[in-house]
Simulated scan of single mutants.
Amino acid sequence: MKKTALVPYAHLPRSHHDRHVLTSTVDVFGTAHWLLPDRAPQPGGDAFPFDALVVSVHPGGDVELTELSAVRARWPHLDRLPDGGFVVAASRVRRYEDADQVQVFDALGRETSSFSVGDAVEHLLVDEAGHIWVGHFDENPAGIRRWSPTGHLYWTSDGARIPGLFDCYALNVSGTTASACPYTDFPLVEIRPGRPECGAGAGIH
């Protein structure tokens, strides 16, 4: 069997190693991003909301820094919008908190909108058109949904012929197409906006 050696895709610059890494991602355009507060937020403490630095390393190696103000998310997901802004979302919804779960920031790090997508967020990804794809784990039956950056629900897996969708185990985007692998049957599902017909086995179009 041929072995393929794994190599790092991107490195967090050493000048930021003193900060705490809350989460990281690679966006649909191939840029890597890290969300870095000054220190790790303490559950039950007074560290929320907090300011955070997003360090972005582009495919050519250029580094870009964006300061986000008043981030509220515990256990956050992060991705970048095509206009240079960012989306930060909390994995869980806390019943005793009134604040919206998803925050949208502009390219200068200022919050421009917020909304909720429901509890139990397993994956959050932004496609090339700026649509926000959310996959939920099994504590939320919503499955997979596609949102606008202002909180408009464009598409939901409710009624789609996706076999055994109880948990979105894996989710990825390429262009404006999302690919998912749901539990329990583990099919490879392809979701293409504007193609409402569902295919059997390998995908939904």
Rank of each mutant, 00 (worst) to 15 (best):
L108W: 00
A129S: 14
L125R: 15
H20F: 15
A90K: 09
L153E: 01
G45P: 10
A5K: 14
V7H: 13
R14I: 05
A180D: 02
D98K: 13
L81T: 10
T23S: 12
G61M: 09
R110K: 13
Y154N: 10
L81S: 04
G30M: 13
V121F: 05
P59W: 06
G151T: 02
A90G: 15
T66R: 11
T112E: 08
T112W: 08
L124C: 11
V134C: 01
W147M: 02
V55W: 06
T184A: 15
A52G: 08
V189M: 11
R195Q: 12
P141M: 07
Q42D: 11
D100V: 00
D46I: 05
E190H: 15
A40P: 04
R146E: 00
L36C: 09
H123G: 06
W147T: 05
D27P: 04
R192T: 12
V26I: 15
A129W: 10
R74N: 08
P76G: 05
V54F: 06
W34P: 05
P196M: 09
E97N: 04
E97S: 10
P141A: 12
P187M: 03
L78M: 01
Y183C: 05
L36S: 06
D62M: 06
V126M: 02
G135P: 04
H16A: 07
V134S: 03
G194M: 04
V28T: 14
D51G: 14
F186M: 04
L165C: 08
L165Y: 02
S157L: 02
P41G: 15
A120V: 08
G109Q: 07
L68A: 09
A5N: 15
V173I: 09
R95P: 09
G84V: 00
A5W: 15
D62T: 13
V121G: 06
V55I: 03
L125M: 07
P141V: 08
H123E: 01
D62W: 01
P187V: 06
G164Y: 03
V102W: 00
V57R: 06
Y96C: 10
A32K: 02
Y169T: 02
G135R: 08
R195N: 05
P13G: 05
N172M: 03
A5F: 05
S56T: 11
R92Q: 10
D167N: 11
G159C: 06
G159I: 08
P82R: 10
D51Q: 10
V71T: 06
L12M: 03
H205C: 10
T31L: 07
A99K: 07
Y9L: 12
T4R: 13
E139D: 14
P163Q: 08
V173R: 03
D83Y: 02
Q103R: 03
E139A: 03
V57D: 09
H58F: 04
A90M: 08
R146F: 02
G201C: 11
G199P: 11
V93F: 07
F105C: 06
C168L: 03
G45C: 07
R95G: 14
G151K: 00
P49Y: 07
R92F: 06
S69A: 11
A202L: 14
R95E: 12
V173Q: 08
G143H: 00
G194L: 04
P196T: 03
W133C: 05
A178F: 04
M1S: 14
A32I: 02
T177F: 01
W155T: 00
Q101G: 14
V134K: 07
H152E: 05
P43D: 09
N140T: 11
I144E: 13
V7R: 07
R74C: 02
